[in-house]
Nucleic acid binder design. Structure first.
Lengths: 198, 198
DNA sequence: CCCGATAAATTGACAGCGTCAATATTGACT
DNA sequence: AGTCAATATTGACGCTGTCAATTTATCGGG
C-alpha cells in the first residue's frame, strides 16, 4: 500500500520513467519539465513537488542509468567467472556495449551542465562502479609491471573517449571504412597484449 | 578599406570575439545571442545578419578553437624537429595542454548539441588535425608492430577521454591524490613504452 | 463520521531565451 | 542627389523553467 493512487499514483517514479523514455526516443534536450509533465498526464508545475528543478530530475535519471551499468557489470563478471586479470578488460567491454546499445543514455549521463555529478547518491554509484571493477583491491589486482591505477584510468579514458568522439563524428567511416563495432575491441586487445607482453 | 566602420565596424568578427570571451569567462551556456549582442553593443537581433542562428555562431567559434589547436601543434612539431615516431605522442601532449589551459574552450568544441560538426569548414579543420598529425602518411609512420591507425585512435581517445572525464569529476583527487598534471603524461609514457617494448 | 491538517496538483504569472517580421538607418554607387 | 542594398533596431511570438496563490484529495484523530 504505502503510496498508491494518491492523486496520480507515485508520480515521482512516473516522471523518472517519462524522462528516460524521452531520452531514448529523442535526446536529453527533449526532456523539458513541461514535456515530461505532459507525457505523464499532469500539469506543467506538478513535478516541482518531487524534483526541485530540472537538474534534480535529470540527476536522478542519471543515477538510474549508472545503476544499470553497474548491474550489467555485476552480471558479466559474476556469471562467467572472469579471471582476475581480465576483470578490467571485461568492465571496459561492458561500458562499451552499454554505450552502443543506449547511445542517448550514455551521452546524457556525462552532461555535467544538466546532471549534478556532485550529488551524493550519484557519486556513490559512480564510485562503486569505478573502484569495484576498475581499481579493485590492491592484492587481487593482476601483476603486470604497470601501475594498476594508471591502467584502470587508461582503460576507462580510452573507452569513454572513443565512444564520445565517435558519437560526435570523429572516427566515422569517412575514409578508413572501419566501423566502431570492430575498432574498440581491437584497441582493448592491443592494450592487453602490450601490457601482458603477448 | 573593404569593410570598416559600416554601422558597427565588422560586427561579424566582434561577435566571434565576444563569444570566445564569454566562453572563457563563464561557460558556453553564458553564450546567448542576447548576451553576445549586448557585449558587442548592438541590439539583440543584430547578429542575425551575420549568423543565421546561435548554432552557426558557435560553430564558427569552434572552428577558431580547432584552428588554434592546429597551429599549436604545428609550432610544436616544427620547432623542435620531433622524430617521426614521437609525432603522435607530441600531438597528444599538445591536445592535453590546450585542454588544461583552456578548459572551457575544450569542453565547448565537443558540444555537438551546440556545434555543427558536419559543417564543412569545421570538418576540414578537424580532418587536418587528425590526419596530418595522428594518422600521418603510411610511409613515414613509425614501425611498431601495431596498426598505426589503431594507435592513433587509441591515443586520441585516451587523451580526450581522460580530459573529458576529469572535467566531470572522475579521477578527481578523491581518494588517490594524483593530480591530472602528472597522470596523463604517465599514461602516454606507459603506452609508448608498451608499444616500443622498452 | 466528520473535519481540520497536510500533501499533491492546478492555474496563472513572470523573465529570459531564440527567432522572425516590419521598420528604420546608413553607406556605397551611379 | 538620389537610389538601392546592406545593416541595425524594435517589437512581437512561442517556448522554457520556476514561483506564488489556489484548489483538490487523502490521512489521522476527535
Amino acid at each position: 500500500m504505502s503510496k498508491k493512487k494518491f492523486h496520480h499514483g507515485n508520480l515521482k517514479q512516473a516522471l523518472l520513467d517519462a524522462t528516460l523514455k524521452l531520452i531514448d526516443a529523442k535526446a536529453v534536450s527533449a526532456v523539458t519539465i513541461r514535456a515530461v509533465a505532459e507525457e505523464t498526464g499532469v500539469s506543467h508545475a506538478a513535478p516541482v513537488n518531487h524534483y526541485r528543478d530540472r537538474r534534480e530530475l535529470l540527476t536522478a535519471a542519471a543515477n538510474v542509468v549508472f545503476n544499470e551499468i553497474l548491474e550489467m557489470t555485476d552480471r558479466r563478471l559474476a556469471a562467467s567467472d572472469v579471471p582476475v586479470r581480465e576483470r578490467l578488460f571485461a568492465t571496459a567491454h561492458v561500458l562499451y556495449e552499454y554505450a552502443m546499445k543506449h547511445p542517448n543514455r550514455y551521452a546524457f549521463i556525462w552532461r555535467s551542465d544538466l546532471v549534478d555529478h556532485e550529488n551524493e547518491a550519484l557519486l556513490k554509484t559512480m564510485d562503486t562502479l569505478y573502484y569495484k571493477y576498475c581499481i579493485q583491491d590492491e592484492a587481487s589486482a593482476p601483476k603486470t609491471g604497470f601501475d594498476h591505477d594508471t591502467l584502470a584510468v587508461m582503460m576507462w579514458s580510452m573507452v569513454h573517449g572513443y565512444v564520445d568522439l565517435r558519437m560526435k563524428g570523429m572516427f566515422e567511416e569517412r575514409k578508413d571504412g572501419v566501423t566502431g563495432q570492430e575498432r574498440l575491441p581491437a584497441m582493448i586487445d592491443l592494450l592487453k597484449g602490450a601490457i601482458f607482453n603477448e
